[in-house]
Amino acid sequence: MNIIACVRQTPDTETVIKINGAANGIELDGVKLVLGPYDEYALEAAAQIKEKSGGEVTAVTVGGEKAAETLRHCLAVGADKAVHINDSGADDALAIATALANQIKKLPHDLVFVSNKGTDSDRGAVGPMLGELLGLPYVGLVTEIEVEGGSATVSRDVEGGAKEKFKVTLPAVICAQKGVRGEPRYASLPAIMKAKKKPIETVSPEGDLASLRKVQVEKLEYPPARPPGRMVPGESAADKAKELVRLLRSEAKVI
């Protein structure tokens, strides 16, 4: 089983995000970049399926020089090799999906994992685009996956409290949601040492990605600050409850 895990380096959630002077990007100085938290779940699923069915996991990322750090981490938590598509400009989902698709076409692939979204872009668009560009079936936000022979059975929760179960012929593109295969593993010390010996291939993106950047950031701004709140007064729990309900009814008018 040849498994591809598409990953992306994103700022750590706890990092304070500061908009740059031109208001078209963020200050990257001092921002801690990590493997996307959703990507960890996708990679864990890839690693576990490989460990059961045999084969290889290749982590693929699109990003600038620093993105290689993320791949090194991937190699310590289940990936066998990695491909770094070196392009610092690809921030549009279509450009990223195209760069990934062109690379994945050259690699043997039975299963392509993507994750829910990057915590920087908050998009979740690369997965379905990749399915389309590779001409492969796609299922998003999968919470369970079992691979058997040439197909995968996957389940996911959808709005309205329903759970959909699909049988998908491989190869396919699967977006792994949190919990698909439990918590992501830690990079053990021996795994970190072994990762040093695993290959990272760096390639230039194929095709004219610039022409695919159809979503341009014009301006970044901070969301409006929430007006300061207040503490609900009251001597007892019952008083506070009464006052809160009054405030929600007559002041906030939400109930």
Binding site: V34, E69, R72, Y186, A187, L189, I192, A195, K196
Partner: peptide, 14 residues
């Protein structure tokens, strides 16, 4: 080094 950072980050998370 990147390896030392990886070790530190892993242990910090754990």
């Amino acid at each position: 080094s990147d390896d030392h950072k990886m070790v530190r980050d892993m242990v910090r998370k754990l």
